[in-house]
């Protein structure tokens, strides 16, 4: 199996959870004081979703090339 699919799945799911949690807690400034004032859950959640999408794209591209 192409390992990029489970990697994409894991990162999109974890990224989505962190993003939603980051949006829900965005107004809690005390919570993000420790991370230098950055809403790190939201910021990093989005980064993880993008990475997961890239991995999915690479896997789909490889499959298309193989079947061509």
């Amino acid at each position: 199996m192409d390992l990029r699919y489970p990697i994409a799945l894991l990162f999109v799911v974890l990224g989505a959870i962190l993003t939603v949690f980051g949006v829900m807690t965005g107004s809690d400034t005390a919570m993000y004081e420790r991370s230098a004032g950055i809403n790190i859950n939201l910021a990093w959640g989005v980064v993880m979703i993008v990475f997961g999408a890239i991995m999915y794209g690479l896997a789909a591209l490889a499959r298309r090339r193989q079947s061509a």
Binding site: I17, G22, M31, Y32, R34, I40, N41, W44
Partner: peptide, 11 residues
């Protein structure tokens, strides 16, 4: 433990 809030701490 000191720099990550809940959520990122789990990660």
């Amino acid at each position: 433990v000191k720099l990550f809030p809940t959520g990122m701490l789990g990660l």
